[in-house]
Simulated assay, not measured.
Amino acid sequence: MSQSEIAHLLGVSQSAYNKWEADQARPNSDNIVKLADLHEIDIYDLIGERAFIQNNTDTANGNIQGNVTINHSIPENIIDTFLKNQEDISKLLEIQSKLIETLLKK
Rank of each mutant, 00 (worst) to 15 (best):
S4W: 09
E5H: 06
I6S: 05
H8K: 14
L9R: 12
L9A: 14
L9K: 15
G11Q: 06
V12Q: 00
S13T: 15
Q14D: 10
Q14L: 06
Q14K: 15
S15W: 07
Y17P: 00
N18T: 12
N18M: 13
W20L: 10
W20M: 01
A22E: 14
D23L: 08
D23E: 12
R26V: 11
R26F: 06
P27I: 06
N28C: 13
D30P: 02
N31F: 05
I32P: 04
K34Q: 11
L35A: 04
D37C: 09
D42G: 05
D42W: 01
I43N: 00
I43G: 05
I43C: 09
Y44Q: 12
L46D: 01
I47P: 03
I47W: 01
R50A: 14
A51H: 02
A51R: 11
I53K: 05
Q54Y: 14
Q54I: 12
Q54H: 08
N55D: 03
T59L: 05
A60I: 12
N61C: 07
G62T: 13
G62H: 04
G62R: 02
G62E: 07
I64M: 02
Q65M: 01
G66W: 08
N67W: 03
V68P: 03
T69I: 10
I70G: 01
I70R: 01
N71T: 00
H72Y: 07
S73C: 03
I74T: 10
P75N: 14
E76P: 00
E76R: 12
I78P: 00
D80W: 05
F82P: 01
L83G: 03
L83C: 14
N85Y: 02
Q86F: 13
S90K: 13
K91N: 13
L92W: 04
L92C: 03
E94C: 02
E94D: 14
I95D: 14
E101Q: 11
T102I: 02
K105Q: 09
K106F: 09
